[in-house]
C-alpha cells in the first residue's frame, strides 16, 4: 500500500464546510500542526471539532477560532484560550464539554465498531441530562452508568512520530494521548508524521496504530511543538 500524499494541503483537500473533524493532541502536545495550518489557509468554515482542548489563542485549534472557522467544539477542557472564552460567552461558538475519559472512549468505541459505551463518569451531574442510564453490579454493589454514543467523524487528523507508506504509526511519549483512538475513529484518517520511513523499516512489534486505520499519510514540516507550561528545576 502507498497512502503517501505530498503535504497537508493535498491531505485535507476534500475537507469541506460543516465537516466534523477529530484532532489529536493533549494541550499543544501531539497536535496535527501542519493540518491545522492547511485548514486555516483553505478557509473551510462551520467545522465541528472533536478535540480534548482548544489550543491557545495563537496556536493549535486557537488559530481556527481566530478565523471563526469553528462552529462547535466538543472538548473536555478549554481553559487556556481567551478568544475561545469570548466566543463562547457571546454565543458565537457552540461548546459541548464532556469528561475526558468519555471523550477518549467514545473515539475508541467508533474504532472498535461499537455503537455505545457505558461509563460512570458524569452520573448525577449535568452531563447526565437527557442520557440513558443503566445499573450494573460492580464489586458486589449496584452502580449507575451513562450510555455514551460512539463518535461519528468525517475526518480524523492525527500526529505521530514515525510512520510508513502503509499508514503504520508510532507515537512518542505523552504526544500519543488521543491520537491512536482518533486515528481509529475517523471515516477518513489523515496522519502527519515527523519522520516518514520506507515500508519495512518499522518493527511490526512496535506499531501503535496499524495502517488499516490510516487513509493518508505525509511527512510534516517545520514542527514548532510549542510548550504550554515550561516548568524546570535548577541543576
Amino acid at each position: 500500500m502507498n497512502k503517501t500524499v505530498k503535504n497537508a494541503e493535498e491531505a485535507i483537500k476534500d475537507i469541506r464546510d460543516n465537516a466534523t473533524i477529530m484532532l489529536g493532541g493533549f494541550g499543544l502536545c501531539g497536535i496535527p500542526e501542519n493540518c491545522i495550518t492547511a485548514l486555516v489557509k483553505k478557509g473551510v468554515r462551520g467545522l465541528t471539532c472533536i478535540s480534548n482542548n482548544a489550543g491557545v489563542d495563537d496556536f493549535g485549534i486557537g488559530l481556527m477560532l481566530q478565523t471563526r472557522q469553528v462552529k462547535k467544539m466538543i472538548s473536555s477542557y478549554v481553559g487556556e484560550n481567551a478568544e475561545f472564552e469570548r466566543q463562547l460567552l457571546s454565543g458565537e461558538l457552540e461548546v459541548e464539554l464532556i469528561p475526558q475519559g468519555t471523550l477518549a472512549t467514545r473515539c475508541l468505541a467508533a474504532g472498535y465498531g461499537m455503537p455505545a459505551i457505558f461509563t460512570p463518569a458524569g452520573v448525577g451531574t449535568e452531563v447526565a441530562i437527557g442520557k440513558e442510564s443503566r445499573k450494573f453490579m460492580v464489586d458486589g454493589q449496584e452502580k449507575e452508568f451513562l450510555m455514551e454514543m460512539a463518535f461519528d467523524a468525517d475526518f480524523a487528523l492525527v500526529k505521530a512520530w514515525k510512520g510508513d507508506p502503509h499508514g503504520n504509526l508510532i507515537f512518542r511519549e505523552t504526544a500519543r494521548n488521543f491520537n491512536p483512538m482518533m486515528a481509529m475513529a475517523g471515516r477518513v484518517t489523515i496522519a502527519e508524521v515527523e519522520e516518514l520511513v520506507p515500508a519495512g523499516t518499522l518493527d511490526p512489534d512496535h506499531i501503535h496504530t496499524p495502517g488499516i486505520y490510516v487513509h493518508r499519510i505525509f511527512q510534516g514540516t517545520n514542527y514548532e511543538k510549542r510548550i504550554e507550561q515550561r516548568t524546570v528545576r535548577k541543576k
Binding site: F26, G27, L28, C29, G30, E80, W161, R172, E173, T174, A175, K225, R226, I227, E228, Q229, R230, T231, V232, R233, K234, K235
Partner: peptide, 21 residues
C-alpha cells in the same frame, strides 16, 4: 518524575497540567 533541568525540557513529555516533566 520531577520537572526537567533547565534546557532539558521535552515538548512531547508533559503532565495533565501541561507542564514539562
Amino acid at each position: 518524575g520531577p520537572f526537567p533541568f533547565e534546557g532539558e525540557e521535552d515538548p512531547d513529555l508533559i503532565n495533565a497540567g501541561k507542564q514539562t516533566i
